[in-house]
Design a protein around this nucleic acid. Structure first.
Length: 571
RNA sequence: GGCGAGGUAGCUCAGCUGGUUAGAGCGCACGACUCAUAAUCGUGAGGUCGAGAGUUCAAGUCUCUCCCUCGCCA
């Protein structure tokens, strides 16, 4: 039994994520985790909210809340949204929880011991009225080049030139609008990534199991040359900076920068899992404690690749401790909204909680997997959504389940028929399955989710084709036994289809399997080689219950309403 | 401006290291069937693979130039 550690990129805390975020890391990670479990492997699937940093502080202030309370609330909201999409995390932790704080401090102290961290003095803008240092983006003013009055401290949006906050004329705080600013000296810890360049390059060279997208991004960064990066900030909300376990002198009002502590959150959340469930987190993360046989798979959007292939490895490798590093990495492009960006302010796009108000999670899961932005960006449109759902789920799968179970109920007393002889139609479907089942598994192993979904759909469609060939309703008129084999095979196909559907649409799959009385231990993806056995798995005479209609079709009227409400085709 | 990804049937997308008549789903047309959520099954129409040039016995697949889209970065 293989051991698979799976992490999804951590969703940031300031608000519910939109469907693009879901489609680009959390959902595919879940589909993969479910697949690996069905293959009989030992899976630890971890995610967490990424909670530190200035945006969280500001969002809390906007909400008029204490930042801790704000994060508590938002964490619960994101947790619930994830539950609504049936994301089967073994644990959904928080980067602000104790294990991550301790681990972050540990890594920083170890890195310093290895000579990879040093203190440097910087000059930053301090807002007297706000009582805080301002990150570059939060200082605005008049651009010295073009006179644009709302240039940011890092760049002017009007002329595009790069700026330092001190370049701005008439600078003011974006937070309060105060012009009462001054430049102050402040000390920060810097991670000396330049010293690790060779080590990281060797590690990237040695990594297989990364898609070309990931490798090329990693090499691009390495080729451009790594830079030493400041890993602390003048903020209250974050992981306190320590030295030998006590507050670090001169850093009492500083915390680690969010990009430093966030990826460590993968490990921290694993420890939270262990605390909550009595598991052994070190056996997943420490190669000296059993993790050498673990395969670690990360899921993320393409914007996160550099952090996962260079920055986070710098932390882990730099420690020279035996931590597990990533083996396989799956990166996604963007899901777009009618070809453009999802945008809250322009009311374009759907967020996770809103989506669940419209339809159950399974509908979205199927669409977002079958239309995943794998090879390139892919577009969400209401029209496409409707067409995929109605065709794949309602017509091809849902209707298949419905037609054969209803027929069983009306003509065979709701029992799995025992009679009839295997014939040509059965040979045909068996041959289909023999070829398609391994293809599905191969695509899932390769994390080609679009192709896997398309193969699964093809199997569902083959079921309908089988019924056309077997035509039990015709045979029933002259030879009930000849009809019986078609019905029995059809019912077994329903079971198989639901088993195949589990990683994609777990709730609908469970509904079907429950209705057909398939016990938990008979739902795995170990299909065996003998299709004849697979297609006669249900006990003869076994009573089945036609499930309620699995998927309602999406009507044009609904589409029009949603399109109006969320923006869409009229743009 | 630099970098990256991409431009393939009406739509959304597959097409690996170049090689038989370029594929799928949806949509469309016609036909079949009637067990079923007017669902299903079959057949068919539809593409000078962004433009141009080049390499090659052979290019959607390699090289160059140009046009367009999207994103990232500085």
């Amino acid at each position: 039994m293989a051991r698979i550690l799976i992490t999804s990129a951590l969703p940031y805390i300031n608000g519910v994520k939109h469907l693009g975020n879901l489609a680009g890391s959390m959902l595919p990670a879940d589909v993969y985790a479910r697949f690996q479990r069905l293959m009989g492997n030992d899976v630890l699937f971890i995610c967490a909210t990424d909670e530190h940093g200035t945006p969280a502080e500001l969002a809390a202030a906007d909400a008029g809340m204490d930042v801790r309370a704000y994060c508590d609330e938002q964490h619960d909201i994101q947790k619930r949204a994830g539950d609504g999409f049936s994301l089967s995390y073994d644990y959904f932790g928080r980067t602000s929880n104790e294990p991550n704080i301790r681990l972050t401090q540990h890594f920083a102290e170890v890195l310093e011991e290895k000579g990879l961290i040093e203190e440097r003095v910087e000059h930053q803008v301090f807002s007297i009225d706000d009582g805080r240092f301002l990150p570059d983006r939060y200082v605005e003013g008049t651009c010295p080049h073009c006179g644009f009055e709302r240039a940011r401290g890092d760049q002017c949006d009007s002329c595009g030139r790069l700026l330092e906050p001190t370049d701005l004329k008439e600078p003011y705080s974006k937070i309060s609008g105060s012009k009462n600013l001054e430049v102050r000296e402040t000390k920060h810890l810097h991670l000396l990534q330049t010293k690790m360049e060779g080590q990281i390059r060797d590690w990237v060279d040695a990594s297989d199991g990364w898609p070309s997208l990931a490798k090329s991004i990693a090499y691009k960064w390495l080729d451009e040359g790594l830079r030493d990066r400041s890993i602390t900030r003048d903020l209250k909300w974050g992981v306190p900076v320590t030295k030998d376990g006590a507050p670090r002198p001169g850093f009492e009002t500083k915390v680690f920068y969010v990009w430093f502590d966030a990826p460590i959150g993968y490990i921290g959340a694993s420890e939270e899992w262990a605390q909550a469930n009595g598991g052994d987190w070190e056996s997943w993360w420490r190669t000296d404690k059993g993790a050498d046989d673990v395969t670690y798979v990360q899921f993320m959007g393409k914007d996160n690749v550099a952090f996962h292939t260079v920055s986070f490895p710098a932390t882990i490798l730099g420690s020279q401790e035996p931590w597990k590093t990533v083996d396989k990495l799956k990166a996604f492009n963007w899901l777009t909204w009618y070809g453009g960006k999802f945008s809250t302010s322009e009311k374009r796009g759907v967020f996770m909680d809103q989506a669940l108000d419209l339809l159950p999670g399974d509908y979205w899961r199927w669409y977002l997997t079958a239309n995943a932005p794998e090879g390139s960006d892919s577009a969400f449109t209401w029209e496409h959504f409707q067409s995929l759902i109605n065709s794949d789920l309602a017509n091809v799968l849902g209707n298949f389940v419905n037609r054969i179970t209803k027929y069983t109920a009306s003509k065979f007393d709701g029992q799995v028929p025992a009679t009839g002889e295997w014939g040509e139609a059965e040979d045909w479907i068996a041959a289909e399955l023999e070829q398609r089942l391994p293809a599905i598994i191969a695509n899932m192993e390769a994390m080609e989710f679009r192709k896997a979904a398309s193969e699964v759909r093809a199997v569902w469609a083959a079921g309908n084709e089988y019924l056309t060939k077997a035509e039990p309703w015709v045979k029933y008129k002259s030879d009930v036994d000849a009809a019986a084999i078609g019905v029995r095979t059809g019912l077994n196909l329903v079971v198989l289809f639901a088993i195949l559907a589990q990683p994609f649409i777990p709730n609908a799959a469970a509904t079907v399997l429950d209705a057909l009385g398939v016990s938990e231990d008979k739902r795995s993806w170990q299909f065996g080689d003998d299709m004849k056995t697979l297609l006669d798995a249900l006990p003869h005479g076994h009573a089945i219950e036609p499930p309620a209609v699995l998927f309602a079709k999406i009507e044009d009227a609904q589409l029009a309403e949603w399109s109006e409400r969320f923006g869409g085709s009229q743009d």
